[in-house]
Simulated scan of single mutants.
Amino acid sequence: MSDKQMTINDIAKMAGVSKATISRFLNGHFERMSEDTRTKIDQIIKTSGYRINQQAKALTDKQTHLIGMVVADIENIFSSMLFKGADQIFQESGYQIILMNSNNSLDQEQKQLERLLSLRVDGIILQPVSEMASHYQFIKDTGTAMVIVDRKLTPQSWPEITTDNYGYSQLLGNFIVRMGYQRIVMIGEKIIDNSARTERYSAIKDIVNKAGISAKLIEIDRSTSDSDIYNLLMALSDNLENRTAVYALKGTILMRVIAILSQYHVAVPGQLGVVAFDDWDWAKLVQPQITTIQQNPQVMGKKSARRLINMLENDNMKIDTTLIESSLKVRDSLVDYHKSKSI
């Protein structure tokens, strides 16, 4: 045989049968096909070196075994661990995953989602940039299965795999209050359109209202300088005179806060308490180690993959919420002002 790629037409001519018969053979439909014909086609395929075009076969099967995953910030280690967990489950189940980054941009997110739809993915795992389900109606219109991970949509329109951000942030806030702090300064990226950050912020506001203390919010982006952050922390803590705990709303913000406090020689926990909602185990990499709510993104990725496979293989389209367990890790970054006062 020549080096030319064999086609289904070539096999049909060699076997003396129709192209439709070859197609039925390749797809395992042997009814109305004699044993002699089956044996003849099988031998020709084996001796000719013909390779099934999996992409073309997927068009026939109407299933590609491709899964799309879009994360908000691929530079965040949370996204890497999320992908790792999902990829493990998909590999075990015979699916291939395509990872894409929205870079926290709604426009880019839509382009990435449209690219995945053009690739005819069987399903999508999405860490959404927007809270509004209407922004993703075009996916529902295609009938493509989807699971929302880490965040929530309003109204809920797909299965969601997330953390109890409000509950765990409330747990952390109560601990801060119990340690005798009079002010909590939250710091993070803009909370609008981000359900995780909104819930963490709301929990602290509810805690301080009950406790009769104050809470402030610092919203930053990539253009916010270290000196700007330092000046805001100083102003909101009354130049370190107020018993203030800084609450970093995610792990990457925590690392930046710690670097700034070190740069400006602010002692933790002596002058400022520091806590965080940690995406990964950043808090164990610094001294003192930081009190955190510790998430488990790898488990979140595994759960989202299993939920999507269940949708695809069992036609389970139930809209539900799965909460992934987190934990409060008490370390050395807060001063117990009640105890220090009594000493």
Rank of each mutant, 00 (worst) to 15 (best):
Ile191His: 09
Ser304Phe: 07
Gln156Ile: 13
Gln91Ser: 09
Ser80Thr: 15
Ile124Pro: 01
Phe90Glu: 04
Ile11Met: 01
Thr291Leu: 09
Ser326Val: 12
Leu328Phe: 13
Ile253Ala: 02
Ser48Thr: 14
Ile8Asn: 07
Met234Cys: 11
Ser79Ile: 06
Ile213Pro: 10
Ile98Trp: 06
Ala72Pro: 02
Ala283Asp: 14
Asn27Cys: 03
Thr47Leu: 00
Leu308Ser: 03
Arg306Trp: 01
Ile124His: 01
Gln108Ser: 12
Gln298Pro: 00
Lys205Asn: 08
Thr321Met: 01
Asn310His: 12
Ala133Met: 09
Leu272Ala: 09
Asp42Trp: 05
Asn242Arg: 15
Gln298Tyr: 09
Glu31Asp: 15
Met234Trp: 00
Ser333Asp: 05
Ile77Pro: 02
Ile290Thr: 10
Asp332Gln: 13
Ile290Gly: 05
Ala276Thr: 12
Leu285Asn: 08
Val129Phe: 02
Ala72Arg: 05
Ile148Gln: 00
Ser333Gln: 05
Val70Arg: 07
Ser105Met: 12
Ser340Thr: 13
Asn103Pro: 00
Asp315Arg: 13
Leu153His: 03
Glu114Gly: 03
Asp226Arg: 09
Thr224Glu: 10
Asp238Cys: 12
His265Asp: 13
Arg200Glu: 03
Lys284Ile: 15
Val177His: 11
Arg178Gly: 14
Ser2Thr: 13
Ser18Asp: 02
Leu106Tyr: 09
Pro269Tyr: 06
Asn76Cys: 10
Gln156Tyr: 04
Ile74Leu: 14
Ile98Pro: 05
Glu160Val: 04
Leu126Arg: 02
Lys216Ile: 00
Gln156Asn: 11
Gln298Trp: 02
Leu99Cys: 12
Ser237Gly: 07
Ile229His: 11
Asn239Gln: 15
Ala86Gln: 04
Thr163Pro: 01
Arg178Lys: 15
Thr292Asn: 08
Gln289His: 11
Val70Pro: 05
Leu233Met: 11
Asp164Lys: 05
Asp279Trp: 06
Gln182Ala: 15
Ile41Asn: 02
Gly180Tyr: 13
Glu325Asn: 14
Met69Lys: 04
Ile148Arg: 01
Ser79Cys: 14
Arg32Phe: 04
Ile161Pro: 01
Arg197Ser: 09
